[in-house]
């Protein structure tokens, strides 16, 4: 294994999770085309696997060039947030397509057809593969337990507590496997916490305190004893109403989507935050490119209450919601911004 970059705290910048699977310039491997060629029998499984590897490496090199650390695989090897779970957990089977929150993007809602338990090691294998190919720290992203419970279709448990408990335990074991394989950061995506849907919205309205306590306890089960830095990523909604509770969340950092909840920045600037803070300051769902000065102003505004070395800059959500050239521009801008922030910090 190559020597990792130091674990010293930021300021740092990272992708939140996803990045376009297709290249922004001609000449690079086009995963979309290779998948089509595989479907029509023009290439074999080995050639397709090589195309996936090449795409992950390209995405990682782009992050490295932009001074991002930790790096992710851009979620290139999965079609949606839930696929790694379906791949590695018994009790889950791929189901129908469902819209992913308020996006024109769709995931296969896993059907829970039996008791959920770890059954595969593909996430650990992919993490080890990536850790051998970069000197940067590797971040692994999984759905948080609340979001995972919301996105599956339960045909087995019919018992919220049991489902959440087994999901949390399974997520913990997946994350632990990834950490053992070389992941330095484990991020849990929890859009459900800031944009609750259906049953969660009802629970949140009925007994907000109990709903939050249940989610916090589920997070604790996932991250407990992981031996890696842990992050909670909140996007597609406004986290401002939850700031008080989030201050007590059992993770090292909380990452905020400032495009969906711009008032969070003002609250953080006024009140501070006792954990690491992720500033999702580049809008991942609009192509307009933010200026470095805007990011610097934001960092400066918060720096009175939140130490700069505890800040992480990131896009507000997955950059897959943008065309490849626009996503690439945001990635580069993120790099310019973090370099400027570090320059200021010194």
């Amino acid at each position: 294994m190559q020597e990792r970059t130091a674990h010293a705290r930021g300021p740092e910048a990272a992708l939140l999770d996803g990045y376009p699977h297709i290249p922004w310039r001609r000449g690079d491997v086009n995963l979309r085309r290779e998948r089509n060629r595989f479907e029509s029998g023009e290439i074999d499984a080995a050639a397709l696997a090589a195309a996936y590897d090449a795409t992950v490496l390209r995405v990682v090199r782009e992050q490295e060039a932009a001074a991002l650390d930790p790096v992710t695989d851009g979620q290139v090897r999965q079609d949606d947030l839930m696929e790694p779970l379906v791949r590695d957990l018994a009790g889950l089977e791929p189901g129908g397509l469902v819209r992913y929150y308020d996006n024109n993007f769709y995931y296969r809602a896993p059907r829970v057809t039996g008791r959920i338990a770890p059954a595969g090691m593909s996430l650990a294998g992919q993490t080890a593969w990536l850790a051998r190919r970069t000197e940067r720290r590797v971040k692994v992203v999984l759905p948080g337990p609340l979001t995972a419970a919301a996105l599956v279709v339960d045909e087995h448990y019919h018992d919220r507590e049991g489902l959440l408990a087994d999901l949390s335990e399974a997520l913990h074991l997946l994350a632990a496997g990834a950490v053992e394989a070389g992941a330095a950061v484990v991020q849990l995506d929890e859009p459900e916490l800031v944009r609750p849907q259906g049953a969660d919205r009802e629970r949140a309205l009925r007994d907000r305190a109990a709903w939050l306590a249940e989610a916090r306890e589920a997070t604790r089960r996932v991250v407990s004893g992981l031996g890696a830095r842990t992050q909670l990523a909140l996007f597609f909604g406004d986290a401002a109403p939850l700031l008080e509770e989030l201050a007590e969340w059992p993770v090292d950092d909380v990452l905020f989507d400032l495009a969906s909840g711009p008032s969070v920045a003002g609250r953080l600037a006024a009140e501070g935050f006792p954990r690491g803070v992720g500033l999702g300051c580049l809008d991942a769902r609009q192509p307009r490119l933010e200026r470095v000065e805007e990011v610097l102003r934001l960092v400066e505004r918060l720096s009175g209450k939140v130490p700069v070395e505890r800040m992480t800059l990131h896009p507000s959500a997955s950059l897959e919601f943008l065309p490849a050239d626009k996503a690439r521009a945001k990635l580069e801008r993120l790099g310019e911004a973090i370099r400027a922030v570090r320059g200021d910090a010194r």
Binding site: P20, H21, I22, R32, R35, N36, E39, D79, D80, L97, N104, F105, Y106, Y107, P287, E320, F321, L322, P323, A324, D325, K326
Partner: peptide, 17 residues
């Protein structure tokens, strides 16, 4: 019209602006 954006699996559309 922008470049292709993924909507699911390996399906993409050129998102209007």
């Amino acid at each position: 019209i922008s470049g292709p954006v993924r909507s699911y699996g390996n399906r993409y559309y050129r998102k209007p602006i």
